[in-house]
């Protein structure tokens, strides 16, 4: 059960410091920006492509690659929900006020999800709009939001982002410091991006089974696994992280 008062308090904490609010806006702004830049690149390639290459052109895959960068911001957002308390020493007062520790963790997870979801919907929506408008303006093929591939990205993408914010929260609770948690989170999340530099089998493993890679594959429906399984992999991973974070949090001196 989420105690609504504790949840409200989490929102007050979140909304009353600048870093978290700025980061939320940055997610949306960066999404729009990357949608535009990657679409410009794609449109340029399309303009100089051969007839065969033009047939294979996918108007969504390339331009939504900005998600691989924006994921770092959304995860950092989750990190801050935990570490802004450790950094300023307010975890003591917060725990003294809330009492049972599970109540605080559940409220933090709930608040993170409730903020990350609309922020992700706005970010990915904006990325889609800027990218497709840019493609259309430069005469490249583009998708309308009603297209099945587009719908999948617009609906499932924000859910993947929200799960990555929750991943950030779990890391923040475990590592108790913004710098440490953001570094670990970024390194972890960039692994699938680095996949091409690894040997083939490792690269395949990373893009198919690495939790956030699997999540993105489910969004773009390009996975070797059924999308439900890819997506389930990410959900399961985040759940395990939260169980670990909570178990540690419940037994540790604050």
């Amino acid at each position: 059960m989420i105690a609504t008062g504790v949840l409200k308090a989490e929102w007050t904490k979140f909304s009353s410091i600048r870093a978290t609010m700025v980061l939320s806006l940055a997610v949306v702004a960066a999404s729009g920006f990357f949608g535009w830049t990657f679409a410009n690149m794609a449109a340029h390639e399309y303009a100089t492509a051969s007839a065969q290459e033009r047939l294979d052109f996918l108007p969504l895959d390339q331009v939504m690659r900005g998600m691989l960068l924006v994921q770092l911001l959304i995860s950092a957002l989750g990190v801050l929900v935990a570490t802004s308390e450790y950094g300023s020493g307010t975890l003591g007062p917060s725990l003294a006020a809330v009492g049972r520790r599970s109540r605080l963790v559940i409220a933090k997870a709930g608040m993170t999800a409730l903020v990350a979801l609309p922020v992700s919907v706005a970010g990915i929506g904006l990325m889609f709009v800027t990218s497709q408008v840019t493609l259309a303006a430069q005469g490249a093929p583009y998708l309308m939001p009603g297209d099945p591939d587009a719908l999948l990205a617009l609906l499932l993408g924000p859910v993947v982002f929200t799960l990555l914010a929750l991943f950030g929260l779990a890391l923040g609770l475990l590592l108790r410091g913004t710098a440490a948690a953001v570094n670990v989170s970024s390194t972890f999340l960039l692994m699938p991006v680095l996949a091409p530099i690894f040997p083939d089998f490792l690269s395949r493993l990373l893009t198919t089974y690495w939790p956030n890679g699997a999540g993105f594959r489910a969004v773009t429906s390009r996975s070797d696994l059924p999308p439900v399984l890819s997506f389930g992999l990410l959900v399961g991973f985040v759940a395990v992280m939260h169980i670990a974070a909570f178990t540690r949090f419940a037994r540790r001196d604050a």
Partner: peptide, 8 residues
């Protein structure tokens, strides 16, 4: 001192 410096 356990208060966030930026929070009112």
């Amino acid at each position: 001192r356990a208060a966030h410096p930026r929070r009112t």
